[in-house]
């Protein structure tokens, strides 16, 4: 799990600079990122963790924080 968190953190650090992203930081809340980023995030999660994100998963709450993403990944493997 910590490993997953680190991987997501590394990915996010390329997009969100000058701000620390904690496990429970709302990355979509403060306009930190744009829509292309959202798609890149989905692509990253699918490839890195060998999961398929489906229609039913497309809720912002699944992607809002590192913790939420780790939970989503956990529900799939």
């Amino acid at each position: 799990m910590n490993n997953s968190k680190e991987k997501i953190q590394t990915f996010l650090s390329r997009y969100i600079r000058n701000q620390e992203v904690k496990d429970d930081t709302d990355i979509f809340g403060g306009g930190l990122v744009n829509s292309l980023f959202a798609m890149q995030l989905i692509t990253f999660l699918e490839k890195e963790f060998s999961i398929t994100i489906e229609n039913e998963d497309l809720k912002l709450d699944n992607f809002r924080t590192i913790n939420a993403m780790v939970k989503l990944i956990g529900s799939k493997v």
Partner: peptide, 12 residues
């Protein structure tokens, strides 16, 4: 897809 965030991957 879904509304709001769930729309993004549909369009993209």
């Amino acid at each position: 897809g879904k509304v709001g965030f769930g729309f993004v991957p549909v369009g993209i």
